[in-house]
């Protein structure tokens, strides 16, 4: 019972703040809604019993990406953004495409209806560490190379041109 109540509360937070991200005209409000939505997704991870993903979501998404997007909104905004229209003319075809996608998702969801949770969740940090340094060692190292490359690229794009 408690799990159901928590799920519906988190769902309401996630979906309303996601609609705020997409529909609010002010980009600052959108970025704040994005932070709230990511925190709600972290709550879903916690209710699914995956503690390490929950911590990583809070650290990387809420603490890193949302703040980074907020900084870029502050740097790249201008006063005219409040009066300029923020959506394009294609909202009706977009709505139809989204309706088609959602219909397909609902059909797929029907195949998985009625599968209950098998057991109570257990702490997963130790098992994930064993996987990261065992079977998944090569993807783990590749991810660190990708992070290093993206960091170098960001520094390269962000620096001032040499005179």
């Amino acid at each position: 019972m408690t799990e159901t109540i928590i799920f519906y509360m988190l769902t309401a937070v996630i979906l309303l703040s996601a609609l705020g991200v997409v529909l609010l005209p002010g980009l600052m409000h959108s970025a704040l809604c994005l932070g709230l939505c990511l925190a709600g997704v972290a709550g879903i991870f916690a209710s699914l019993g995956s503690d390490f993903v929950f911590a990583a979501q809070i650290l990387v998404y809420v603490g890193g990406i949302a703040v980074l997007i907020l900084f870029v909104v502050l740097l790249a905004g201008s006063a005219s953004d409040k009066i300029v229209r923020q959506v394009n003319d294609q909202w009706l075809p977009s709505l139809l495409i989204c309706a088609a996608f959602f219909w397909a998702f609902l059909k797929i969801t029907g195949y998985f209806s009625g599968i209950p949770a098998a057991a109570a969740p257990s702490p997963s940090v130790r098992a994930i560490a064993a996987l990261m340094l065992g079977d998944y060692a090569v993807p783990f190292e590749l991810i660190s190379v990708v992070l290093l490359a993206s960091m170098t690229g960001a520094v390269l794009f962000g620096r001032r041109k040499a005179q």
Partner: peptide
């Protein structure tokens, strides 16, 4: 959530 994000990608300027 995916559908809302897709709508945002398609309509945001």
């Amino acid at each position: 959530l995916f559908t809302i994000g897709l709508f945002g990608v398609l309509t945001r300027r």
